[in-house]
């Protein structure tokens, strides 16, 4: 267990030294603050009274559907494809393959949770500062929405890691993942039947937690998220395990 913890920290450190990661962390603070300033000082918004909470959720949407997936794709490529290219992926370490693989996945997951929480803090702080009508009572539901959004992101992480292991060139991996992601976003408009098959369909599932949640739906979606995570994680590990040191 200690080796996993130690290596997770190690992998996180590797990611944190990358410029890209720093940029994402900066964006998760700057974007909410800038949006709030803009919304409250734009001439258009003078005559519109859009609920502040609504704007906060739109910010969450932006992160969950665009920025965090992008971060995941870059991080997964860095930790798997690029290290594979450089030959540093499977160095002789006192750690089993399973532990190595698991800690890399955990590192990406923790960082994406960290981005989410940082964004939430920025949203709430800038909302209290700039919005005239921000209610404290909205805080529990908003932190709930942000935390719940982490689960579909975990599935996407496992999916990205799996793809990163199939490809041997890091440029190809990142661009391939982005293109595939865009395809997954738009294919339901052409083939509506494919919608619930794709992990992208669940990224904004936090919306469905508002209002009356049906238990039936809850069981179905949680089953999907768990089983697809298990599937992508295992396939990814299988690929990882087959790699020659």
């Amino acid at each position: 267990m200690n080796t996993i913890k130690a290596n997770t920290l190690n992998e996180m450190q590797k990611l944190l030294t990358k410029k890209g990661t720093k940029l994402f962390l900066l964006a998760s603070v700057l974007i909410p603050v800038l949006t709030k300033i803009l919304v409250n000082n734009l001439f258009l918004t003078d005559w519109m009274a859009l609920p502040a909470e609504n704007i906060n959720m739109t910010l969450l949407d932006l992160f969950v559907t665009i920025l965090i997936p992008l971060f995941i794709f870059i991080a997964a490529t860095d930790l798997f494809t690029r290290e594979g290219e450089r030959g540093t992926l499977l160095q002789v370490r006192p750690i089993s393959r399973m532990e190595l693989f698991g800690s890399k996945v955990i590192a990406i997951s923790i960082l994406s949770l960290f981005i989410l929480l940082l964004e939430w803090t920025a949203v709430v702080v800038s909302s209290t500062v700039f919005d005239k009508a921000f209610e404290i009572t909205a805080i529990p539901s908003s932190i709930g929405a942000f935390v719940v959004s982490w689960f579909p992101i975990l599935v996407l992480t496992a999916f990205a890691v799996m793809l990163a292991l199939f490809v041997h060139s890091s440029v190809l991996a990142v661009s391939g993942m982005i293109v595939l992601y865009l395809i997954m976003l738009f294919i339901p408009y052409v083939l509506p039947g494919s919608l619930f098959f794709l992990p992208t369909a669940y990224l904004d599932w936090y919306m469905q937690w508002f209002g009356n949640v049906s238990i039936r739906w809850m069981i179905q979606t949680v089953t999907y998220l768990c089983s697809s995570f298990a599937l992508f994680f295992t396939v990814g590990y299988y690929m990882f395990n087959r790699k020659e040191a």
Partner: peptide
């Protein structure tokens, strides 16, 4: 892989059938 794949397909099917 087999079990999680089956479960995933099953949940997709049941969500679509709602």
């Amino acid at each position: 892989i087999g079990i999680s794949g089956t479960l995933m397909l099953g949940s997709v099917y049941s969500i679509s059938a709602n």
